[in-house]
Structures are given as C-alpha cells and as structure tokens.
C-alpha cells in the first residue's frame, strides 16, 4: 500500500516561511475555492493556512538553540479525526493514504478538529467548512505537469530542501531511506495516531580537526628529513618545497 507523506528535516529548516506562503498561494488559487482571510490589513488579521512554521528555543542561555518547526497535517495512518466525522466528509484515501476533507459534504461541526491532537485542521470562516493540508493532491497527480513539478507546493518552495516528499511504505524511496538512515521520528507517538509525516532530528554540525591533520604526515621529504624545514611563514612554491 502506498502512503504518501512529507519528511521534514528540522536540522535544515531555516524558518523562512517560504513553504507557508507558497502553500497558501497555491491552494487559495485552486479549484477548491479561495482560503479567504478576515481583516487582512486590520487590527486582528486571521485566516486559514494549511501549513505553519513555528520557532522554539531549546536550552537555557547561553546554551540555547533555535529550532524552526514546520507543521501541517501529518496524514496519520490511524487518523483519529476520520471516524468521528458524522458526515463522512473526512476520509483517508485507500490508494495513497492522503487524509482529505470533502468540502461539499462537510457541515462545519468542527468535531474532527477536536479529535486531532496536532492542531492542524483549520476552520474556514468564509466557506464555513473544515480545511487542512491536502498533500497538494490536485498537483501531484496532474499529468499536465512535468515529473519535477508534480510535487507539493511547499516542497518545491523550500530553498534548503528541508522538505522531502514520497511514499514511506516503499522501502526504497528517498523518504524511507531518509527515515531509516537519519533517525526519522513521529510527533506525539503517545497517542497511537501513527503519523505518516516524519521529522528528521536536529544535529550539531561540527568540524573536528586534529593537530596532526594540520601537517601532511606522509610528506616524503619530511619523512626523510633531507631538507631543512623552512619556517611555516616562509614563501613556498608548491607542496614539495613547503613544509
């Protein structure tokens, strides 16, 4: 079975909000209707988004780290939001595991949002229905587009390639490799929702240089000690005459 998902590398995300903007732009211009904002230029602007990038500070000063954390629907494999829906508007597709809301069936009772522990479903105040990330379902199957374009809008927008997209049930896919090799994890595993989206952990990026790496240990001239060792600061022509 296919389970499409996003894999997000926390270590690489720079918090630029490009995915947020591109998601909103792409999905507000789609066939499913606009994602209208209320009061966009007023005092309390608000509106529906499918994707948010949040920022956390980990540790205590001076040992702090800033972590940017993108969050959209995780397309859970056991989605608690689906069975509670009284109309069947919320459903999980068998063929690719995408969790969707049928905008024509939703009565806007908001019950599904209560049943999602991740706070990723957002009620559209203009259309009066529930919305959330569609994994760009209208885009990824669009045969008018090239293979390269047939990826979610947020994935394409990311300047650092922090977002990967693929089938996590295919053990040979890039996302499965990433999850396996970089220690991908799920959010709030304690609720047994089994989210399809995974996160790759933050890492400390450090360069370790040992003393003996500063000098070329296998320099034949040096081993034989035939030449006087010039000063480190003295000019050199090439590898051979230098130290």
């Amino acid at each position: 079975m296919t389970q499409l998902a996003l894999v997000i590398e926390i270590n690489v995300c720079v918090g630029c909000q490009a995915c947020v903007t591109n998601c909103k732009e792409r999905n507000t211009s789609g066939a499913a209707g606009p994602m209208v904002d209320q009061n966009p230029y007023g005092k309390d602007p608000t509106g529906t988004f499918f994707n948010r990038v949040q920022t956390f500070e980990v540790g205590e000063f001076p040992h702090t780290e800033t972590v940017h954390f993108p969050k959209s629907c995780l397309h859970c494999e056991d989605p608690p939001c689906v069975p509670v829906c009284p109309t069947g508007a919320s459903y999980k597709r068998k063929e690719d595991g995408i969790v969707l809301v049928d905008y024509d069936k939703c009565i806007g009772c908001k019950y599904c949002s209560w049943a999602c522990p991740y706070g990723v479903r957002e009620f559209d105040e203009a259309q009066k229905i529930m919305k959330k990330c569609t994994l760009c379902v209208d885009r990824i199957y669009d045969t008018q587009m090239t293979e390269e374009e047939r990826r979610p809008a947020c994935v394409r927008a990311c300047p650092t390639s922090a977002r990967l997209f693929g089938d996590i049930h295919d053990p040979e896919s890039a996302v499965s490799h990433a999850i396996r090799e970089a220690g991908g994890y799920q959010l709030m595993p304690e609720w047994g929702t089994n989210p399809a989206n995974h996160y790759l952990p933050r890492r400390k990026t450090r360069m370790r240089i040992r003393e003996d790496e500063l000098e070329r240990a296998d320099n034949p001239l040096k081993i034989d000690a035939q030449l006087p060792k010039p000063e480190q600061s003295s000019p050199s022509l090439d590898d051979v005459t230098s130290w």
Partner: peptide
Amino acid sequence: IGIKHPHIVQTTQGFMGGSF
C-alpha cells in the same frame, strides 16, 4: 516537536494574528 531537552519554549507560533 520530538526534541528531548528538558527546557523548551516557543518563541513564535508562526503568525501574529489569531487563528482557528
């Protein structure tokens, strides 16, 4: 957010206005 550290605070939820 899946980070094992005893001290984590949110600096921004990602937007200034309210949301659902």
